[in-house]
Design a protein around this nucleic acid. Structure first.
Length: 822
RNA sequence: GGGGGCGUAGCCCAAUGGCAGAGGCAAGGCGCUUAAACCGCCUCCAGUGAGGGUUCGAGUCCCUCCGCCCCUACCA
């Protein structure tokens, strides 16, 4: 595209001037009202792609807009610089992940700066900086001290491709690794956990008060997965010392329990298995152990394969409600990790139990009367209790309460709340992460590394591999140490922490990156927290946001963040994703579109305007063949504005006339529309409003009728101000050309509309008959209801339609509409 | 299976329950030009996925269905 100015030169000039001006460097004691705007800090994967562009454009808009509203806006940037891709790349290249990472950081930083996004770079943070590592470790030790970090042998998700353990959150629904796509295996290992489950209730309850997208809030609630019910014991027939504890959300269905099921991992399974059934049970257990999650969850609807996925143990338990003996099965549809790992099965009121019962020929006893027209198997809805002894006639909710009372008295029961949320497994058998700061001593056990010895930093000469063993474990110099307590020989922990631990507190470090010796000074952090506006992708709706919320609460509780709010992010905005050819634009899909070519042609401003204009920010959009044309269109808008500002052959009039009034009104209405766009994340309509104003202004200024200077200046200055957050470079340049080279448009106040300019003298009033538009009338804007009705009825075409008959009803919404119902 | 979102012109998208069109892209035309591009001006195009309901009035609210997308899932 031929541009009326040198876009590359202009943009780099202003980027330099912003840096030099320090306009967006804010100090913690800034007297202005504070505002903390934050985009999720990125993993440094190389030069920016359109997803970054979109993200940081929105973030920059918030920063520049809030600044023009007179606030001190904290706008920090940093890098989530630990992680697998760098380690894998280093293994491949035979180099060190730090080299790779630092390179990528420079690339991403440079392309973000070329976007014209402004940050307080003095506060830049990298997760892999020794200082950051030290503080991450200090937090770990505080968690350990408080009992929030613990070590346990646990079945874990092992990804053979990544050669590491994964958190539950990193395993896909089909049992594959979120990152590599490999099938995840189950292994028992000694691992470090964070006790996020201690906060399950708080994490759930406080979701309600967050100004977050409903969708994200729902996802958080579902992930935490609170279920209310009862836990009680089933006594085992013939084994008086053994009881099988089960959890249910439907204690009211107790009379319908026709069998029980334990998970293949259940500790009582050997006790329950009779010699006759041993072969069948062990076959089932082997199958379940070897089976991937994928196989294990397959065909759950159809019931196909269920015969092979369950086996009778040979034992019976007593249904405490009926006193009946019911068989105990082992089946892989019951999970060892949820509830007690055992269930009471009620085929009549649970679909999975029903499908299993059908296959294994187990009886079905209804305890809730289904609706008359019900013809399915299990009925899980509301209704009246039947076949349920003392519960008969009750509704489900009352019956639940009564049944819980019953099991409390008769079956060692209690009402119980279970969560789907598990403790957070933070150990990773990888090199490029924050080392876990503990040592193991034969005499003293687990010993935390003393704070004054932090950070524990990995040596550079570690052989990285994918053997599944932590690379640090192979480095004798690192591994062998002395016990801080007894001075004897000890071994360092060789695992590193999940990188989600780094991203769980970086927003706090940003508030106070200068304090040494601790993660942040609470009084400094309290000046900015919580983050007023957090911006990021929907892909972080569960993991990152949940972990960060947990960290915030835990940091307060362990005393590192006294006085700070327990929720870190007040408002959250999740941007829509960019699709291309039907799938998400991503590095792994190889369908990235780099911004550089656009920086060179339409400029960052043109590209920014495109991302703002293409549609609502929270909605996805498709990058198509037509997209480049639309981007050109956005640059064309900038060019048209430029030419108008530089237009020389305007006929200037000395006095204002009616046409000036129209332009002034258009100008002030545009202020309202663009401001609303900023407040309601409707940038697309804001850009459209600016285009509209430019069209009107351009036509008016070029007309032989001529323009009045003050009107023109007001309109053009207003456009520069409104565009300052959206297209900051060209807005800066035009402002400086109009007001002097030392003038910054971004140091100006956001314009406010004159209310007098927002009302028109006359309005087109629509006259409807029975809801259909029949006539239009130009009326005074302040017309009364009576006058509007009178005018409508007097309108000849309306009078003719009514034929002299009195209308049965007239609805007037002056001055816009009168609706006559004949 | 559960949850959420979307469906308006050839395309992207606007419309506090009140005239379906603000803006852009594409297409076509005119002007400018030796010509083209650029630039300026103009034109064209849908009755809102389907069907019900509420209302004086529905793209908008409610219900059913269709299509596409995202998230989630043996969680007892």
């Amino acid at each position: 595209m031929a541009r009326p100015f040198d876009v590359v030169e202009l943009e780099s000039k202003w980027q330099q001037r912003w840096r030099e001006s320090g306009l967006y460097e804010v100090d913690n004691d800034d007297p202005r009202e504070r505002f903390y705007a934050l985009c999720m800090y990125p993993y440094p994967s190389g030069a920016a792609h359109q997803g970054h562009v979109r993200n940081y454009t929105f973030g920059d808009l918030v920063v520049r807009y809030q600044t023009m509203l007179g606030k001190a806006v904290l706008s920090p940037f940093g890098f989530d610089s630990f992680g697998l891709p760098a380690e894998n790349a280093a293994i491949k290249a035979g180099s060190h992940p730090r080299i790779f990472t630092d390179q990528r950081i420079e690339e991403l930083k440079s392309s973000v700066q070329k976007l014209g996004a402004v940050y307080d770079w003095r506060r830049e943070v990298h997760s892999h900086d020794p200082d950051y590592i030290k503080n991450s470790q200090l937090i770990f030790l505080k968690f350990f001290e408080a009992g929030l970090a613990y070590r346990a042998n646990a079945p874990v998700n092992w990804c053979p491709g990544c050669a590491t353990v994964l958190a539950n959150e990193q395993v896909n629904g089909d049992g594959t690794c979120d990152r590599s796509g490999d099938l995840v295996e189950r292994k028992n290992l000694e691992q470090w956990f964070f006790k996020i489950t201690d906060y399950a209730d708080e994490l759930l309850n406080e979701v309600d008060g967050l100004e977050w997208p409903e969708r994200v809030k729902t996802m958080q609630r579902n992930w935490i997965g609170r279920s209310e019910g009862a836990e009680f014991a089933l006594s085992v027939d013939g084994q008086p010392d053994v009881a099988l504890r089960v959890f249910t959300t439907r204690p009211d269905t107790g009379f319908g329990v026709t069998y029980a099921v334990v998970a293949p991992e259940h500790e009582l399974l050997p006790t329950l298995t009779t010699p006759e059934q041993a072969a069948a049970v062990s076959e089932l257990v082997e199958r379940a152990r070897g089976a991937s999650e994928l196989e294990r969850t397959a065909s759950s609807d159809s019931g196909a394969g269920l015969d092979k996925r369950g086996a009778f143990t040979g034992s019976y338990v007593i249904n405490p409600f009926t006193g009946d003996k019911v068989p105990v099965y082992v089946a892989d549809y019951v999970l060892g990790t949820y509830g007690t790992g055992a269930i009471m099965a009620v085929p009549a009121e649970d679909e999975r139990d029903y499908a299993f019962a059908q296959v294994h020929g187990l009886p079905v006893v209804r305890t809730v009367a289904p609706p008359e027209d019900f013809d399915g198997g299990a009925y899980a809805g509301a209704g009246v209790k039947i076949n349920s002894g003392f519960l008969d006639g009750l509704d489900v909710d009352s019956a639940k309460k009564a049944a819980i009372e019953f099991v409390v008295k008769n079956a060692a029961g209690e009402s119980k709340v279970n969560f789907r949320l598990r403790d957070w497994l933070v150990s990773r058998q990888r090199f490029w992460g924050c080392p876990i700061p503990v040592v193991y001593c034969d005499g003293c056990g687990i010993v935390p590394v003393p704070v004054e010895q932090l950070p524990v930093v990995a040596p550079d000469d570690v052989a990285m591999n994918k053997s599944g063993q932590s690379p640090l474990a192979t480095h004798e110099g690192f591994r062998n140490t002395t016990c801080p307590t007894c001075g004897g020989a000890a071994r360092r922990e060789a695992d590193t922490m999940d990188t989600f631990t780094d991203s769980s507190w970086y927003f706090l470090r940003f508030t106070d990156p200068f304090t040494a010796g601790k993660p942040f000074d609470p009084t400094e952090a309290a000046k900015w927290m919580p983050v007023d506006q957090y911006i990021g992708g929907i892909e972080h709706a569960i993991l990152h946001l949940l972990y960060a919320r947990f960290y915030m609460k835990a940091l307060v509780d362990v005393g590192l963040a006294p006085g700070l709010p327990r929720e870190p992010f007040k408002k959250l905005f999740t941007q829509g994703m960019i699709r291309m050819g039907g799938s998400k634009m991503s590095k792994s899909k190889g369908n990235l579109v780099a911004p550089q070519q656009y920086y060179d042609s339409v400029g960052a401003d043109g590209l920014r305007l495109f991302h703002l204009f293409v549609g609502p920010p929270n909605e996805d959009f498709d990058w198509t063949d037509q997209t480049n044309d639309v981007i050109d269109g956005c640059a064309r808008f900038i060019d048209r504005l430029w030419r108008l500002a530089e237009l020389e052959d305007v006929v200037w009039r000395d006095t204002a006339d009616e046409s000036d009034l129209a332009i002034r009104r258009a100008t002030h209405k545009t202020i309202v529309r663009v401001t609303e766009g900023f407040e309601k994340w409707g940038y697309n309509t804001g850009v459209a409003a600016l285009m509209e104003l430019l069209n009107a202004l351009s036509k008016w200024a070029r007309d032989a009728h001529g323009a009045h200077r003050a009107t023109f200046d007001e309109a053009l200055d207003t456009m520069c101000l409104l565009l300052a957050p959206m297209a900051p470079h060209v807005a800066s340049e035009l402002w400086a050309r109009r007001h002097g080279d030392d003038q910054f448009v971004h140091a100006q106040s956001w314009p406010t509309a004159d209310p007098a300019m927002l009302v028109d003298d006359t309005v087109t009033m629509v006259i409807q008959v029975a809801g259909k538009v029949k006539a239009r009338l130009e009326v005074a804007a302040d017309i009364s209801e009576e006058a509007a009705i009178a005018a409508a009825l007097q309108e000849p075409s309306i009078a003719a339609l009514l034929g002299g008959a009195a209308p049965s009803r007239v609805i007037a919404r002056p001055p816009k509409l009168v609706n006559i119902v004949p």
